[in-house]
Computed example of a mutant assay.
Amino acid sequence: MDLGLNGRTAMVAAATSGIGLAVARRLVAEGATVSICGRDPDRLDEAVRLLTQQAHGAVHGTALDVTDHAAVRTWVDEVAATYGGPHVVVANAGSPPEGGAERFDVADYRAALELNLLSAVTLTRTALPHMRAAGYGRILFITSLAARQPIAGLALSNTVRPAVLGYAKSLVQELAEAGEGSVTVNVIAPGMTRTPTLQAWAEQLDGGLAALSADIPLGRLAEPDEIGAAAAYLASALAGSTTGVVLPVDGGAGRSLL
């Protein structure tokens, strides 16, 4: 199936491992030119090397922290000037610390907002003018199951992840009212996924990964490539009428009706 991504330029934030890297790998496989970012230069170089092995277009990496708004704006503008677009932007970031609501003070909540919401806002706002000029835009937000229902012990995620949905839904309406139907906005909400971070966390639990899978109807964790495949479709020309969607990739772990 041709997803129509050959020759498009995509940017994937926080893509040196896990879900971000899996998304970048899928986009590269579809022929897109892909630029990724990450905080650790060594991990970034390794991720670029891995992606280059299967790339049809160019692969580019920039070392930055997604909470550094000036650096994110520079990254977008440099990619636009060098490769065109960007046509696809994937807003992704790490997870805030674990803990209950009373464990954290205001500074912790502010930091979580910077990491998971405001970083996505800056990336989106900077990329949108380039998408308008190109006549093609796919904005994807990677959140988590916590965006749809609270998860015990993840108060920061439970607070800030739903805010991304609110921003995405607001953006959908504003783009529609402006007649900018060439730009779509969608959210992917992964559940427990077999990433290096999750596997390291599971080693500290009784029962390990099996314990994490116990409440998942499919009986297993999601694989990063399954989230990558969902992202590639939503980024594609085939998904031109799909906007405002919150797509769970959680093995049925979500209990909400909507």
Results as ranks from 00 to 15, higher is better:
Ala232Trp: 14
Ala29Gly: 07
Arg148Thr: 03
Val66Ile: 09
Val89Trp: 10
Ile188Gln: 05
Ala146Thr: 06
Gly251Asp: 09
Thr184Ala: 04
Ala15Leu: 06
Gln173Ser: 13
Thr33Lys: 09
Thr16Lys: 07
Ser256Glu: 09
Leu118Arg: 09
Ala71Pro: 00
Arg103Leu: 12
Glu98Arg: 15
Gly244Ala: 02
Gly251Phe: 12
Gln53Asp: 08
Gly208Val: 07
Leu218Ile: 04
Arg138Leu: 03
Gly18Ser: 03
Ala70Glu: 15
Leu3Ala: 05
Ser95Glu: 12
Gly179Val: 04
Arg39Cys: 02
Leu209Ile: 14
Gly4Tyr: 07
Ala81Pro: 00
Gly240Phe: 06
Ser182Pro: 03
Arg194His: 11
Leu257His: 14
Gly85Thr: 12
Arg161Ile: 05
Gly228Pro: 01
Leu165Trp: 12
Asn116Leu: 08
Leu205Thr: 02
Asn6Gly: 14
Tyr167His: 15
Thr67Cys: 11
Ala232Ser: 14
Thr16Ile: 02
Thr122Ala: 09
Val246His: 05
Gly85Pro: 08
Ile151Ser: 06
Met192Pro: 07
Arg25Asp: 08
Arg161Phe: 13
Leu3Gly: 01
Val66Phe: 11
Leu221Asp: 02
Ser35Val: 03
Ser119Ala: 14
Gln173His: 15
Thr62Val: 00
Thr74Trp: 14
Ala55Val: 04
Thr122Lys: 05
Thr143Ile: 07
Pro41His: 11
Arg39Gln: 08
Gly179Phe: 02
Asn158Cys: 01
Val34Lys: 02
Thr242Gly: 03
Pro41Trp: 15
Ser157Ala: 11
Gly38Gln: 06
Leu118Ser: 01
Leu218Gly: 00
Thr67His: 07
Pro224Trp: 12
Val249Ala: 01
Leu221Ala: 05
Leu44Val: 00
Val89Ala: 09
His60Pro: 01
Met11Trp: 08
Thr242Pro: 03
Ile216Gly: 04
Pro150Leu: 05
Leu257Gln: 13
Gly191Cys: 07
Asn92Thr: 09
Trp201Phe: 15
Phe104Tyr: 11
His69Gln: 15
Phe141Met: 00
Pro196Phe: 05
Ala163Ile: 01
Ala168Trp: 10
Thr184Tyr: 06
Arg148Phe: 12
Val245Ile: 13
Arg25Ala: 04
Arg194Met: 07
Ser144His: 09
Thr9Leu: 04
Leu258Lys: 08
Gly254Tyr: 13
Val246Pro: 00
Leu205Pro: 00
Glu203Ser: 05
Arg220Cys: 04
Leu140Tyr: 14
Ala70Pro: 00
Val48Phe: 11
Ala112Thr: 09
Val246Gly: 01
Ser213Ala: 15
Pro217Val: 09
Gly219Leu: 11
Ala214Lys: 10
Gly219Asp: 11
Ala210Asn: 10
Ala176Cys: 03
Thr126Pro: 01
Ala15Phe: 09
Leu209Asn: 08
Ala29Val: 02
Ala112Lys: 13
Leu154Ala: 10
Ala93Ile: 04
Glu78Tyr: 13
Thr143His: 12
Gly137Arg: 10
Pro190Lys: 07
Val183Asn: 05
Thr74Ala: 12
Glu78Val: 01
Ala120Trp: 08
Arg25Met: 06
Leu218Ser: 07
Gly94Phe: 15
Val23Glu: 03
Ala152Pro: 00
Ala235Gln: 13
Cys37Arg: 06
Val160Glu: 01
Ser241Trp: 15
Ser182His: 12
Leu44Arg: 06
Glu177His: 05
Tyr83Met: 02
Ala222Cys: 12
Ala81Asn: 15
Val79Thr: 02
Ala134Phe: 14
Ala147Pro: 02
Ile151Pro: 00
Gly20Gln: 03
Val183Trp: 02
